[in-house]
């Protein structure tokens, strides 16, 4: 492998990690921006997406059934959490929210262990995405390329929706000033609920998409949580652009850090986070100006 090819592959690896982080952080950040709710159990929803995907793929022997089924399943679970716990905790302070969703992680992870066991489960890569594709003269696994494309598509779809549709306009108005939006006749509660559902579906999607690459394990719930929180804080809570910028920064720092400064790479993101909190505690691209 030549030097250019090596760096191009690393670039694609970084992009692929960024896209997974984006799918997760966008839900978390918008739920926070709109509902002022910190959902630490977001990583657990990601894990559930992977496991539900594994089961659907096993029953139907079809990856695409899992691909569409897992986000729906996770959304249903998310709705149950919303009505049972989260709705009641919204008025509480951040500490109560952190604690309750922290408790939810424990409960969900153990339930997953009971249902699926503790061993890693995988989903076979769908046939059409097996093998390598050639891009800019380098060959790269087709499935990973698919993750990149999916992330970019979701990114574009959400940006368009936020910028061009009336739903997006209502959403931006509610993040900016919820009370005023409500006074203008926007049903903020209904909007919140729909955003929460989209966030859950995206977490489930990220889980099922990650399963063929990383396998589903109970540790996923907490392993992904901290990088996702870092993305959200660096980018700025509540902002779509922030989630995009944050996930690209964290994804690339993790990938290139591992190549360039292997002994130092894991703490690079934490240093970045500490720096952001000191210099710009509101994040790089905050939702409210």
């Amino acid at each position: 492998m030549s030097g250019t090819e090596f760096w191009a592959t690393q670039f694609l690896n970084g992009l692929q990690l960024s896209m997974l982080l984006f799918l997760l952080s966008v839900g978390l950040t918008i739920i926070f921006g709109l509902m002022h709710f910190v959902n630490l159990a977001h990583g657990a929803l990601y894990m559930l997406g992977a496991y539900i995907g594994v089961s659907i793929a096993m029953w139907t022997d079809n990856y695409w059934a899992a691909f569409f089924g897992a986000p729906i399943g996770v959304t249903i679970i998310g709705i149950a959490l919303y009505t049972g716990v989260i709705k009641r905790m919204r008025k509480e302070g951040p500490m109560s929210q952190v604690l309750v969703t922290f408790g939810l992680i424990f409960v969900i992870v153990d339930l997953v262990r009971i249902v699926w066991g503790s061993i890693a489960l995988g989903i076979p890569t769908p046939e059409i995405l097996q093998g390598q594709v050639s891009i800019f003269g380098i060959s790269y696994p087709a499935y990973r390329m698919f993750i990149i494309a999916l992330g970019l598509a979701v990114m574009a779809g959400l940006s368009l929706m936020l910028a061009r549709t009336s739903y997006g306009a209502m959403l931006r108005a509610s993040v900016e000033n919820g009370e005023m939006a409500s006074a203008m006749g926007i049903d903020v509660e209904k909007l919140l609920f729909s955003v929460f559902c989209v966030g859950c579906a995206l977490a489930g999607l990220a889980g099922v998409v990650a399963a063929p690459v990383f396998s589903a394990t109970p540790a996923m719930a907490t392993d992904i949580l901290i990088p996702t929180l870092i993305v959200v804080v660096i980018g700025g809570l509540g902002s779509l652009t922030g989630a995009i910028v944050g996930s690209l920064i964290v994804g690339f720092i993790q990938t290139f850090g591992a190549v360039l400064l292997p002994s130092f790479s894991s703490i690079l993101v934490y240093i970045l986070l500490a720096g952001t909190l000191i210099i710009r505690p509101e994040g790089l691209v905050p939702a409210r100006k």
């Binding site: 716990v85 509480e92 109560s96 309750v100 424990f106 153990d110």
Partner: peptide, 16 residues
């Protein structure tokens, strides 16, 4: 051996 599930449930109930 599902101790963590109980600690989680206790925590949720205690906070709520």
């Amino acid at each position: 051996d599902r101790w963590h599930m109980f600690i989680g449930a206790i925590l949720i109930v205690a906070v709520m």
